[in-house]
Design a protein around this nucleic acid. Structure first.
Lengths: 184, 184
DNA sequence: TGCCAACGTTGGTGTCGCCAACACTAACAA
DNA sequence: TTGTTAGTGTTGGCGACACCAACGTTGGCA
């Protein structure tokens, strides 16, 4: 890429002129071209904002990031083993154990041994959990709006579609944590 | 969303039937609709794959994730203070200190006090650093291809464009770490 | 001269993704 | 019936990362 020269005795003025830019337009110009052209770099940096916004939003209503995914999974797919919960939501089964404990403690799910297979626990959402999920739905909708604020409806759908395909691809190849998968 | 019923005495068969799906097509159907429609969730999950792939790729050539961004920034924008390096690359200045130490140690950058402002260090890329950057360029190109494998050229450009706009938006609002910004 | 802010450093924290190891349980083949 | 393999859940733990406070030095400005 183009090489710039620092003036004698100091920092390149052009660099400092753009680094502090506050207008969103052209802000990417202050990031190195090599990395701002990398989807991985963009995804990682964007995820940091998403993570912070999500944590703030759910903490504000006394929730945790993973609560939504787990409750949503139970609501949609019905009662589930912890292992399957992890598969639906992309969580390691050791983390699921801790998360489920928290939701049981909160009364939002209940756990019972599967009489058909005593290796498994059956996790079910409770009425309180359903109520909680409805609360989270509002949080999630606001969050989506905030997170995708610079995009219109069509662009939002496009971003979600492209990300989904990339995530499907890599999930198929790698799986979520600690799962057997083809090619392993 | 649609409610499914677990059969008496066990886990809902439909759920387990789709959880283990290995074909990428429709894999998203195994994720709760509430979350798979959230860009934030998708970005976070995709970032986990990106992070792993990036770490693996750079580690394989004896590098670290942040090496590329820092060297790229110095190459493109010229010598820079540590604070400006952090601004260009989205790193906290305390982390930049550690990263620069590592690059100095490796001989890929050199550090000198700014005679014009003794608060600042001037960080410059070295010939060895330029050579290293060229190595990383190859790694990054391969990485991009692997990461965006399921997308064609136009879709890749679209994803990068959309992510860039979202990242610009949130960077403008929030900044990278520990920076004054409008509305703070 | 005093105040405010920038820079760089040090030390530290909390979260997260991931993993090993183990005990229990189930399915299946010999 | 026995041994093997694998699934499930739990516990304990690790490394990376993003983030922050606090401090000393330096510079700009009123």
């Amino acid at each position: 890429m183009g090489e710039s020269c620092a003036p004698a005795g100091g920092v390149a003025a052009a660099a400092t002129d753009t680094v502090g830019a506050t207008a969103a337009e052209g802000l990417a110009a202050s990031w190195p071209a090599r990395v701002r052209g990398l989807a991985g770099w963009l995804v990682n940096k964007t995820a940091v904002h998403s993570h912070r916004l999500t944590a703030e939003a759910f903490t504000a209503v006394g929730g945790r990031r993973f609560h939504y995914a787990l409750l949503a999974s139970l609501e949609e797919f019905g009662s589930s083993s912890q292992a399957d919960l992890g598969r639906h939501c992309g969580f390691d089964r050791s983390d699921v154990a801790t998360m489920v404990n928290e939701l049981v403690q909160a009364g939002h799910v209940e756990r019972a041994q599967d009489p058909a297979d005593r290796r498994r626990n059956i996790i079910a959402i409770t009425p309180a959990g359903r109520s909680r999920l409805a609360d989270f739905d509002v949080v999630a909708a606001d969050l989506q709006d905030v997170f995708l604020a610079p995009l219109d409806t069509e662009e939002r759908a496009e971003l979600i579609s492209l990300l989904t395909r990339v995530l499907e691809h890599h999930t198929a190849l790698h799986g979520f944590a600690r799962e057997p998968h083809p090619g392993a």
